[in-house]
Write a protein that binds this DNA or RNA. Sequence first.
DNA 1: ATGGTAGTGTAACTA
Length: 258
Amino acid sequence: MKLATWNVNSLNVRLPQVLAWLEAHQPDVLALQETKLEDHRFPAADFATLGYSAAFSGQKTYNGVALLSRTPLGDVQTGIPGFEDEQRRVLAATVGGVRVACLYVPNGQAVGSDKYAYKLEWLAAARDWLRDELAAHGRLAVVGDFNVAPEDRDVHSPKRWEGQVLVSGPERDAFRELLDLGLHDAFRLHEQPERVFSWWPYGRLGFPRNWGLRIDHVLVSPPLAAECRACTVDVAPRRHERPSDHAPVVATFAAPSD
DNA sequence: ATGGTAGTGTAACTA
């Protein structure tokens, strides 16, 4: 199984890139964030042409998540149960015996802001929900844009970023609490080069200098961790004209019998 | 030089 996640920062703009990437890489599942499309505008027919089914939960201008799959998506769920939120940030579905949760964690804007408080509340609610998901589904993958760089090695310049939103202590603690549920960061299951990131600011000071953060993640339950063979960031789409500011993260898993 | 770039949508917000 090949599972990927990509914050596309407007599916309307990025659709040709996403279609090309799907054709080239043929993942079993691709999770998208920041589609910024209302559901009636979701380009399901374009994905169907490539053999992908889609589930989606979107809104105008902001947020929006989707799951694309080569096999049917079952038990589709939107939002965190019991957590009232108008922002479309969560979508979960079952694919081939694997429960996949697609998250677009709030950015948080700035430490101490209202949006930062919302981010921490949101992460606490997600943690409580995912504890239940983990109990209900042995094979669980939680993927998406977490808007948290878990450790200093996930930050191009830890000193410059120290205490800032995306790397602050409380955000890292919240991310750690997800791992403490029994989830594994698929990227860290494997030996990795230094300075691998998944997001870079737009502009000359961003990608060209690799001034990035690793904030997009694939978290997996123990059975999937045992089957995980690789987890990489595909930086190629970040070089395109009109790129998303994020690159796809791709995890591959051996079949359970292998 | 005294701030940058992108998307939405056409002012101002979010990232």
